[in-house]
């Protein structure tokens, strides 16, 4: 990185070392702030808005979600656990939507790549294709969410453009990337036959081999509260959603793995 690139800043909420579920091996995961979607079941509400947000817990403690960190400082942070990045371990960029800020941390990715650090990304792909294109050469491992592909639902419930998503996913596969697809199982949303038919269709069409499904959880309930919001979901029937999704994919002869996030 040049001296001016080192000083460039991006906005993050957290840098988590010893991450075991965000890619192969042991990883450090950077959570970038800001997302293009507004999924009602979001488990990281602090990462949704780009703006730095104040939080306050019921016990009176307070603080801010989000901080700007220079690429230089972030690079040092990400290399602290380098000794543990064995057998594919490395760094994962997550969020929020990590591709939204990609233009601002390309020099960091370059530096990490040059130092043979394995790079993974967790993205929903609801971004400009130029941002996907910029990322392609850096990331060794892609997690791509697949949520709602019914265009109207996607727009209304998630604030997303399903066409944009599918174009980007196709673009990825055309560039030889075989992402791991992660499907959140949300009762009444992603587990309906109409939604699942489209999901199955695209998984088959793009010949996506790695599919993971997971049930949503309410571990972020306190975070919502601290942001002055209420956790909006009812999870009472959600076990059923996981079963529905698994059953449907199975019937469609799509192999999937159940994971916990």
């Amino acid at each position: 990185m040049t001296e001016s690139e080192k000083k460039q800043k991006i906005r993050v909420t957290n840098i988590q070392r010893f991450s075991l579920h965000d890619g192969p091996g042991i990883r450090t995961t950077v959570f970038l702030k800001g997302c293009s979607l507004r999924c009602p079941w979001c488990a990281n509400p602090e990462n949704v808005r780009y703006e730095i947000e104040p939080w306050q817990k019921s016990d009176g403690t307070a603080g801010l979600f989000g901080r700007d960190i220079s690429l230089d400082e972030l690079y040092d942070e990400l290399l602290k656990d380098r000794g543990f990045y064995l057998e594919g371990g490395g760094v994962t960029f997550s969020g929020g939507e990590p591709l939204l800020q990609i233009e601002h941390y390309l020099p960091l990715l370059e530096e990490l790549k040059q130092n043979h650090i394995h790079l993974a990304i967790e993205t929903a792909l609801f971004v400009d294709q130029k941002q996907v294109e910029a990322a392609i050469r850096f990331f060794d491992w892609w997690y791509v969410d697949m949520k709602l592909l019914v265009p109207e639902w996607c727009r209304r419930l998630l604030n997303g453009d399903a066409r944009q998503y599918l174009d980007n996913l196709t673009f990825l596969t055309e560039h030889g990337i075989s992402p791991t697809i992660r499907i959140p199982c949300v009762h009444g949303y992603t587990d309906t036959p109409e939604s699942l038919e489209r999901i199955a269709h695209w998984i088959k069409k793009l010949e996506l081999k790695q599919v993971e499904i997971f049930g949503i959880h309410d571990l972020a309930r306190e975070k919502y509260k601290s942001l002055g919001r209420e956790w909006p979901m009812d999870l009472s029937d959600n076990e059923e959603a996981v079963r529905n999704v698994a059953r449907f994919l199975n019937k469609s002869q799509i192999q999937c793995k159940m994971i916990r996030i």
Binding site: I26, D81, G83, F84, L86, E87
Partner: peptide, 16 residues
Amino acid sequence: KNEDKFVLFLQGAIRE
């Protein structure tokens, strides 16, 4: 649930 990753952790820790 993470036996394999704990093996990696130990390997890394020994090296550190």
